[in-house]
């Protein structure tokens, strides 16, 4: 896990996915081959743009590592037309609803005990100030 997270830090910190130069599709995470057409002509592409919650689940049956954070609110998020599954944060079960406007933030995802590494990655939170301010 130490080296896996390190190898993938750009994906995880900056939502770097793939854009296929052959078929034009964009997907997450980064892969050297296009998962749609198999082409090798894939470039790194940062996922950007408006993010919206497609669907979500409030996960109570979590692993021991996630006990501090339970329930975990897991979302399927559409960001700029690309769907990703990621954790939501700064939202309570009573506040979350499909269709809500989101934005990416950097958060802890897994902490390897008291002495191990802290693994950071992008999560999504409700966009600050609703759909207007709080952005670019």
């Amino acid at each position: 896990m130490i080296t896996r997270h390190w190898r993938r830090r750009h994906n995880l910190y900056k939502l770097v996915g793939s854009r296929c130069r052959s078929c034009g599709r964009v997907f997450y995470p980064y892969s050297q081959r296009c998962i749609y057409c198999g082409s090798r002509e894939v470039e790194q592409a940062r996922l950007e743009g408006d993010a919206r919650l497609v669907s979500y689940s409030i996960v109570y049956s979590v692993s021991d590592e996630a006990k501090y954070e339970a329930p975990v609110i897991l979302g399927m998020v559409d960001i700029g037309g690309v769907k990703v599954i990621a954790e939501l944060t700064d939202v309570s079960p009573g506040e979350v609803e499909a269709g809500m406007s989101l934005e990416p933030v950097l958060r802890r995802v897994t902490v390897n005990g008291e002495s191990g590494l802290i693994y950071y990655a992008v999560k999504f939170r409700p966009r600050l100030g609703g759909s207007g301010s709080g952005g670019d």
Binding site: E87, T89, L106, R107, R108, V109, I118, Y120
Partner: peptide, 9 residues
């Protein structure tokens, strides 16, 4: 801070 936050985030 929330449970997934620290001074770094």
């Amino acid at each position: 801070a929330g449970p997934d936050e620290d001074s770094t985030t």
